[in-house]
């Protein structure tokens, strides 16, 4: 086992762990679902890629490489889909603070199409939902 490659791999793993820590700080500090997703998706893609690269440096053999590439490719394909679904559900169920959004192009398109999200005038916001639950 080459100790230099071990240390390089461990450093990649350390960066992945630091991304997880940053994501958890964002989860605790950020105000609504969309901003928390912004923090939480960093270790899912970049962190997992760093971890896979670090593991490849640490194992120093060719045989696990195929499985590691499969992990990376599958995560890169599936993470955007899951993030899109969660974000869409968060938007449609009103779990976001519309005052913080600088552009809201989806609301403009929905208004042009004749729909509007029931939010603001007499509708229940996040606070009402929290109070009821």
């Amino acid at each position: 086992m080459n100790p230099v490659l071990d240390i390089i791999g461990a450093l990649f793993l350390l960066f992945g762990a630091m991304l997880c820590f940053a994501a958890s700080v964002g989860l605790v500090r950020f105000p609504d679902v969309i901003t928390r997703m912004h923090a939480a998706t960093k270790p899912q893609t970049l962190g997992l890629l760093l971890v896979v690269i670090g593991l490849a440096f640490s194992l120093q053999s060719v045989r696990p490489l195929g499985m590691l590439v499969l992990v990376a490719v599958l995560q890169l394909l599936t993470a955007p889909v899951a993030g899109h679904m969660v974000g869409r559900t968060a938007y449609r169920t009103g779990h976001l603070d519309s005052d913080r959004l600088t552009p809201d192009e989806l609301a403009e398109d929905l208004a042009a199409a004749g729909f509007h999200l029931d939010r603001g005038d007499g509708a229940e916001g996040i606070e009402d939902r929290e109070a009821r639950e």
Binding site: L13, G16, A17, C20, A23, S24, L27, V33, R36, M37, A40, P43, Q44, G47, L48, V51, V52, G54, L55, A82, V86, T89, A90, T93, H95, I126, R129, E130, E133
Partner: peptide
């Protein structure tokens, strides 16, 4: 909300992956 818990569970899975690696 439930979606906050979904996002948090995803982060826990990411932490588990890093720990296994």
């Amino acid at each position: 909300s439930t979606l906050d818990r979904v996002v948090a569970a995803d982060v826990i899975i990411a932490v588990l992956i890093v720990a296994l690696a």
